[in-house]
Nucleic acid binder design. Structure first.
Lengths: 380, 380
DNA sequence: AACCATGATGGAATCGTTTCCATGAAGAGG
DNA sequence: CCTCTTCATGGAAACGATTCCATCATGGTT
């Protein structure tokens, strides 16, 4: 029992294939022809094959979606957002999980290229060189949640060059509706020309010119740090994951002065490594009183490690975690978190990638929210 | 800068396109030709387009994956398993999330059909009628985690007919390696012919003859209930989600006698509904002392509702939850769970769907494990 | 009445691949 | 030396859609 093709419909309706195609894709046709074709198509249960169409138009519909890890519920939510948007557009989504490994990422990009998937949403882990092939092949790429690491910091430009556009952005941010925010161009300080007019509309040249949907890490971290400082904490540690340079940088800035680098530790994407990093941190620096975890898996590890070492939260240790996840409320004490609109991020990214072509998509910066629960207390 | 086609390679290598195709897909060719073609292909950075291939072979490579909700980390893990297997086979995965809504499921199936995706892994929510079109179109379908609801129970056949194959299965289960288990044919009692030879190799006829990767719900639930009974609990409640008839049935069987139906409550897939169901249950039946939650979202809701009502776990209420999720350990007290090998399930399902065609895939039943933590205590 | 504009229509080309089939060469066996 | 087999090889036909282009009819304008 094979599927009916356009030819079958044409024959049954006594018209040419071209006419059928036109009718189905909204071209011009006489009312009676249109009706007859439609009737026959329905009767034969005809569905145009994406295969033929794709080959002819030299592109696969739909979009690719590359995430580090579907087990992480933040990415799960992001994916749900993407899927929701794709569904409403009737487009398929090809998914891949990279485990934060640039090699796997490159492989998956290759696979998508082979499939002629020409639209891609990605939480990137590889650097610009990983992504250039995709762009050169004409893919429309939208990054979500983070950007590829800068290939070469060059002159680090500690603050002044970076601070200018940032503060401008922050100004625009405060008190502005989320909707208006979305039209904002993302201006990242790093890589900006030192002498360039700071207020010029032209964005800073970055190695990769790819639109992105990000959250305002800088402000999220700053809020958290300020909150902790307000509670009297001075030795605040940061536990970071891969591909999160922006957050670390924001943390360094937020604590001000010369940061105590020993209080800033990293892990790769795995649970074990996160646990090891947290546990190591607590043991080498028992004097720390607060911790910012740069991701929900890191937060999980931190809580676990703290419990193992008999550190009571928040009495001995205050914890703020990035990402609001369902279990944050279940934890005891319930975790204070920096919430990101994960689902929205996915949805917006999908919108961006689908809209591309009509107008050049602009980047989107979404706000974060500090959700105060019970895991932070005053320094004793 | 367009991609090189097979024609370009053929011309550059001075051979016909047929030869190039043969070389690339491992057909016969003389060593020198093969080498030349390979060299030219590499030099031109040629990658065969999946579009042309798919059209020609009348099928899209890869597989579809339909899940209720990527936010649920059980399904996240399952998806990771599928992706891992697909990656090692170099196959793309088209994903869709159904929100446990048969209508959306049907829509997604239609979309996959349109894409000529002919292999599908699904956690089904629609009934047999939803799935028949896919099967009739020649799709290879493998169900994971659960089966479509039985269309019509007919004569319920309370125990005897169902018990025979089940106990046989259980016998095979105990003390048998997981590898051997995988070759086991899934025999579900419902629908079995009453008078048929019970030991016959021919499986029970079910409305849909689709291979599946399931966990042994019956034994999982039974273990949990026995554990709770051993702690002295007599009024044990069950909180169930959609598409989980097997677990409820298993629960009814495990508690034995005439079950107190008031202690068995359901919710749909949403968090709110789960919370409402749990809260309602606790308030109408304050005499219950233990609860089995048939899924991690249900467990989450139960813990939350219990806390809200000042029920202390495990002092006032013992809780066993289905699915081991990372946060179960973070909860306080850490949750005792029925762990399912979620990732394995996904991986096995993907294997099954990829292997199909060579040999008819058989269903797989994987064991569960009761992981005892701190959420169950003796009845006081 | 001749001409042009408009619009519906179908034939055929096209996309990139696989695969069938015919051709030709070369080697083996009589 | 002829023939039969084997094998590498390339041309061409699919696959199912879209879309260009030519054709034809119709109706309006000069």
């Amino acid at each position: 029992m094979k599927r009916a093709t356009i030819k079958d419909v044409a024959e049954a309706a006594g018209v040419g294939v071209a006419t059928v195609s036109r009718v189905l894709s909204g071209g011009s046709a006489s009312p009676q022809t249109r009706e007859r074709v439609l009737a026959v198509a329905a009767q034969l249960d005809y569905r145009p094959s994406a295969l033929g169409r794709n080959l002819r138009q030299q592109r696969t519909g739909g979009m690719g979606l590359l995430l580090p890890d579907l087990t992480d519920s933040f990415y799960g939510q992001l994916a749900e957002g993407v899927l929701a948007c794709a569904r409403s557009a009737g487009e398929p989504v090809v998914i891949g999980s990279t485990a934060d490994d640039p090699e796997q990422e490159a492989e998956l990009i290759g696979m998508l290229l082979e499939q002629s998937v020409d639209r891609l949403i990605a939480v990137p882990c590889g650097d610009a060189d990983t992504w250039r092939p995709a762009l050169k092949a004409g893919m429309t790429v939208v990054f979500a949640d983070r950007l590829p690491p800068e290939p070469d910091p060059g002159t680090p430009q500690p603050d002044p060059a970076g601070a200018a556009p940032e503060s401008e952005l922050e100004g625009a941010l405060s008190g502005v509706s989320s909707a208006a925010l979305s039209e904002l161009m993302m201006l990242d300080g790093v890589g900006a020309l030192p002498g360039a007019r700071p207020a010029a509309p032209r964005p800073a040249v970055r190695p990769l010119d790819v639109p992105a949907v990000l959250t305002d890490d800088r402000s999220g971290i700053r809020t958290a740090v300020q909150y902790l400082r307000g509670l009297g904490h001075r030795r605040i540690a940061y536990l970071g994951g891969p591909g999160r340079e922006r957050r670390v940088e924001a943390f360094r800035q937020a604590v001000g002065g010369v940061p105590d680098e020993e209080l800033i530790v990293f892990s790769d994407g795995s649970r074990d490594s996160a646990y090891a990093a947290a546990s190591g941190l607590f043991q080498t620096r028992p004097d720390l009183t607060a911790l910012v975890a740069g991701g929900n898996m890191l937060g999980e590890a931190a809580v676990l490690a703290a419990r193992e070492l008999d550190l009571r939260v928040p009495r001995d240790l205050s914890v703020v975690m990035y990402d609001d996840v369902p279990w944050a409320e279940l934890c005891s004490p319930p975790l204070t978190v920096i919430a990101q609109p994960a689902r929205d991020m996915g949805y917006r990214a999908a919108e961006l990638v689908l809209r591309a072509g009509s107008r050049r998509p602009r980047s989107v910066l979404l706000p974060t929210e500090l959700v105060i629960r019970g895991s932070c207390g005053p320094r004793l």
